[in-house]
């Protein structure tokens, strides 16, 4: 920790972006698995994928890399934020009104909310799975596995949860929208010609990811 604290501001930002970009690729993988619930209402594909993710030794190892990624991203974010608050001990009477990116101002808040969501999310699925509280899924030929899909579907039939989920995902979308181009900026990957494309891609990414995640509970809820 003390070592992390003494890293220079830019080093921290570079790590922050690398972890962030890594987490963004995870979101794509996660979404593609979730979407299986829509394409295959029998939940078979989803459960196979979930089973694979839950049992494949490589993925099992990688899972800890992912946790570490989340962990560092969050810890760095908090350290950066505390330093930022310390840099202005006395604030302004009139709050800033400059023409900057709106989402960028609230990264720590959207980040913290996403963190809370992550805990609940892990509680909903991961912990249950660890405790073996997941119903069995019987599928001829595929052997026995846990019916993770049923857990999801049940949750997505709960009105309150769907509303909560949609709000959380929107906030994550805001976080991502700034995060994508910001990561490239922090890594110094800017260029007159390509930066507008990266920014566009960032908006595209955050909209597709957010819409993709949100559409699943909505379809299941109204199905």
């Amino acid at each position: 920790m003390s070592n992390t604290l003494s890293y220079s501001s830019i080093t921290k930002k570079i790590w922050m972006s690398l972890f962030g970009l890594f987490l963004m690729t995870f979101l794509v993988v996660h979404l593609s698995i979730n979407l299986l619930l829509l394409f295959d209402p029998s939940r078979e594909l989803f459960n196979i994928a979930a089973h694979f993710m839950g049992t494949n030794p490589l993925i099992q190892i990688f899972q800890w890399v992912l946790f570490a990624g989340f962990g560092f991203h969050i810890i760095l974010g908090v350290i950066l934020q505390i330093q930022n608050w310390m840099a202005r001990p006395k604030g302004y009477k009139v709050k800033g009104t400059s023409e900057d990116s709106v989402f960028s101002k609230y990264m720590i808040y959207t980040g913290m909310i996403i963190f809370v969501f992550l805990i609940i999310h892990l509680g909903n699925f991961f912990v249950l799975k660890m405790q073996g509280d997941v119903p069995e899924f019987h599928q001829p030929g595929a052997g026995e596995m846990e019916d993770m899909g049923l857990l999801v579907v049940n949750l997505f039939r709960n009105t309150g949860y769907v509303i909560f989920y949609v709000i959380m995902l929107l906030l994550m979308g805001f976080h991502l929208d700034h995060a994508f181009q910001s990561a490239f900026q922090s890594l110094g990957l800017t260029h007159n010609k390509y930066t507008p494309f990266i920014k566009g891609l960032g908006h595209f990414y955050s909209i597709v990811i957010t819409a993709g995640y949100i559409i699943i509970p909505l379809i299941i809820y109204f199905r």
Partner: peptide, 26 residues
């Protein structure tokens, strides 16, 4: 403080210094 890429600096800079300089420094 640390840069969180809000770009408020560029918006108020009297000499319109671009934030691409920050990227270059990174």
């Amino acid at each position: 403080g640390n840069c969180t890429n809000t770009y408020a600096c560029e918006a108020v800079c009297p000499k319109e210094i671009s934030i691409t300089n920050i990227a270059r420094m990174n």
